[in-house]
Structure formats: C-alpha cells, structure tokens
C-alpha cells in the first residue's frame, strides 16, 4: 500500500501537525497580554495627554495599532516554530516521508497566517469596547483581513528567516524581542511619523508594520492620511521578498 494524498491534503495534515507539535501555545497567549495592556491601561492614561491623533481619538488610534502589533508578534512567533523542527530534526524526517518541501513550506505559511488572524481577531473584538467610530461592514472586514494576511506573510517570513540564522533558542528569543521593539516603535502603531531624523523617518516609512497599522485604521475608522495603494503594493513586495528569503533559508538547511 502506498501513502497517497493530494497537495492540499498533505498541506492540511502538515498544518495540523504544526499546530499540535510545534506551536508554543503558552507563549502565544502571553504575547496577547501586551496589546491588551496597551488598549486598556496605557490607552486610558495617554488619552489624558493626547486626546486626538489625525482626527481620531487616541484610544481608537492605539486600539487599532494594537491589532497591527498583534499580527506582527504572533506571526513572528509562529514563524519560529520551524526552529524546533530543524533542531529536533523532524524537518528531515518529514522530508524523508511522503511530502515535498513546497508542501512543508506552504503548511508553515498557512499555520502562521491562521495563528496571526486568530490572535488579531481576538484583539479586534476586544478593541471594539474602547474604539469609537468603527465602521463594521463586509467590505471593511475583508479589507482588514486582507491587510492582516499581507502583514503576517512578511512577519511570518521574518520569523522563519531569523529562526534559521540563529543557533540557540536564547538567541532566537532575544532577537525576536529586540525586533519586536524596533518594528513597533519605528512604526505608526503608537504615533504618526514624527521623528526629527531623516534616517528614522525613512525606516518608519518602509516599515511594513506602518503599512499594516495604517491599513487597519483605514478599513476600521476611515483614516485617510496616507496613500493606501502605495502601501498595499509596498507591503506585497516586502512580504514576497521575506517569504522568498524564508524559503531560501529553508532550502539551505543542512541535511
């Protein structure tokens, strides 16, 4: 008897395995605390100083930013699941089984997107309690999910790429923490672009998290202070590049 399965069937089996075996659920839950903290604790505090940003209440600004931040952190985190497969050699074992590398890579990407969407959806629902002026329509939700998926491709790819560059799990955690702050504080999650320094402003403008935060705000509260077409295109290009880099590193794993 020969194990026989379609491409989609194999990707689904591998994805289910990723969730069961590789995803660090505890860590995923813990990283949800941070956006909730920003929404409920920091948000109330800052509103006393900054009532409005770009025509929306700061609480709403922060809550929508927290959704973008969640997509970033859970995508990066779920991308690192590949670290375990490589280091405990289930990667090799799977590739010696009835699967192809493309099926494996697809399953990891799918796992990342699903994890990120689930986390973001949760934060989104919670954020509704503080946000004002949220437009809820099929169109806005589709736009929201589209932006989140594009964002999760970039950050998932980034998580995979970094996981395959570092040796120890400590180095991986440290790098992820650092990059979390770099991406977050050089993006429009907490404030609009404002730095005095050109370099920082440029980073701000090319940071995919800026695009995700802007697009989330556009779809949910109609923010229009940026060029959405340009940001979507930039996000697609950066996401594709990162997925390419991730696949390249997966192909280079020494067997």
């Amino acid at each position: 008897m020969v194990a026989n399965s379609s491409f989609a069937g194999n990707v689904i089996s591998l994805t289910l395995r990723n969730f069961r075996a590789s995803l660090d659920r505890e860590f995923l839950v813990i990283q949800l605390v941070l956006p909730l903290f920003f929404i409920f604790v920091a948000g109330f505090g800052y509103t006393l100083i900054v009532p409005h940003v770009q025509g929306i209440s700061y609480e709403t600004f922060l809550a929508t930013g927290a959704i973008a931040m969640t997509v970033m952190s859970s995508s990066m985190l779920s991308g690192t699941m590949i670290w375990f497969d490589r280091n405990f050699r289930m990667f090799e074992q799977i590739l010696m089984g009835p699967f192809t590398k493309l099926q494996y890579i697809t399953s990891v990407t799918l796992s990342v997107i699903l994890t990120a969407l689930a986390s973001a959806a949760l934060v989104f629902l919670v954020s509704l309690t503080v946000s004002t002026g949220v437009i809820l329509s099929v169109g806005s939700i589709l736009e929201l999910f589209g932006s989140l998926i594009l964002g999760s491709l970039f950050f998932g790819g980034f998580g995979i790429f970094v996981s395959l560059r570092v040796k120890s799990s400590e180095a991986l955690a440290a790098t992820m923490n650092l990059m979390f702050f770099v991406f977050t504080f050089l993006s429009s999650v907490f404030y609009p672009s404002s730095s005095k320094y050109l370099v920082l402003r440029v980073i701000f403008e090319v940071n995919p998290l800026t695009y995700v935060a802007d697009l989330v705000r556009r779809s949910l509260v109609g923010l229009s202070s940026f060029n959405p077409k340009a940001e979507v295109i930039a996000l697609i290009i950066e996401g594709a590049l990162m997925i390419y880099l991730a696949s390249w590193s997966i192909n280079r794993i020494e067997l």
């Binding site: 089996s13 069961r20 075996a21």
Partner: peptide
C-alpha cells in the same frame, strides 16, 4: 519516499508532545 520508512542516525522527535500523541500524529501524516 511514499514507499520507504527511514530511521535516521540522529535523533528526531517532537519534544513537547507525549510519546503517544507524537506517534499518533506521525501515523496520521502517513
């Protein structure tokens, strides 16, 4: 690869699962 079973020289395992869950997952992959 559909027709072979390979035990590598180096260890490979799902460290966070119980032996039973890991075996069940592996069987379902096949």
């Amino acid at each position: 690869r559909k027709r072979i079973g390979v035990v590598q020289q180096l260890e490979s395992y799902d460290r966070n699962l119980t032996a039973r869950t890991s075996l069940a997952l592996y069987a379902s992959l096949w």
